[in-house]
Amino acid sequence: MSSPIAHWDPEYQRRAATIVERYPDVRSAVMPLLYLASLHHGHVTEEAMEEVAALTGLTAAQVQSVASFYTMYKRERVGRYLVSVCTSISCFLRGADEVLAAVEGATGVVDGETDDEGLFTVEHVECIGACGGAPALQVNYEFVEGVTPAKAAELCRWLRDARPEVVLGDEMQLLFGGRPSFDPGAPEPEGAIAPVPAFGPYGSARPGTGGGR
């Protein structure tokens, strides 16, 4: 039988094999494989869930029951830049609602929606662990802390104009952020290539490398 992901990029196929090897039980690979499948498909499509099911010996319904539980598995089209504005208590106390409004204004995209061009998705999210740098947001899950409504709007316009291939948290923090939760130490030369958490096999890259590690 041919591989259910034979049509994937060979690099992604290799990563899928690495993921499966990591766990004593193949079912544990469902979550990381869902991230990898959304890199291939752009989001968690029906086909993606069927592929993950075939790789793990589950039914597509079982995979869907997992995918639908977690907010970071996007089952609808997502823009190239996913702007997630934290509106939980610490950010709320520091003006998060005004930041969200500014992001909506600058992108022309209301909370929970994606624009026609597929450039921006805007969402409000629950606490992202950046409370000391409130109000905070993430672009493709890379942090920008201590923002203001004006700076957040500027960030969105910069994304629209510069269209960075790799979204770098430290670069955005420097250009558009304020006080962070803590001193970040040395700059991080790595970032996200898609609206998927940029970790290990799931879409992280150094600028100029054109893909993952």
Partner: peptide, 14 residues
Amino acid sequence: YVRGEYPKPARRLQ
């Protein structure tokens, strides 16, 4: 088990 919104911390740990 690192929360999904912590890719940078996860990269550092990896």
